[in-house]
Amino acid sequence: AETPEQQLKSFLSSTRSLTADFKQVSFDQHGNPAQTSFGVFYLRRPGYFRWQYQKPFIQEIISNQDKVWFYDADLEQVTIKTIDDSLGATPALLLSGEIDLEESFLLKQQGQDEGLNWIKLSPKNEQSGFKYILIGLSEGKLAGMELSDNFGQLTRIYFSNLKLNPSLTDETFHFEVPEGVDVFGQ
């Protein structure tokens, strides 16, 4: 049978696009759940992704090729950054196929947890702003992600209702700036 690493590579190479519901749980430094949010994740390779947070707050992280848009409805603010200096783009960037896994990450099997097969990806370049990313597979498909920040605080993302290779138009990754919102962008 394929090792989890091979499953991840074949999943990424056979997945041109995907949509999934996600639940994101961030843990505080004592390991207790600090905040839970929910939304929809869109991906179209290469280079397009969208985290559409719906609860508890309306927020968006959208990448279309070289720019990443960060939007928060309550803050009435859109910040546009280039991909490389935008924090938080890295997790999805990994999936959006801009980079070849082996070139940028060391892959290591982590075994089973919460019913998923986890693979640890440690960035080869130091300044990537995070220590590692774990990807969880279920039956060879993306089911989970875990990130640790520089303080070791974890964020876990659980994907469900996965749709593989749907046709996603540019519209999906286009962000219409609402009226009266502060926009700042490079």
Binding site: S26, L87, G88, T90, D149, N150, Q153
Partner: peptide, 11 residues
């Protein structure tokens, strides 16, 4: 303070 996914956390 922290960005998305806790990235860039600063205390």
């Amino acid at each position: 303070m922290a960005g998305p996914f806790g990235q860039g956390r600063l205390r």
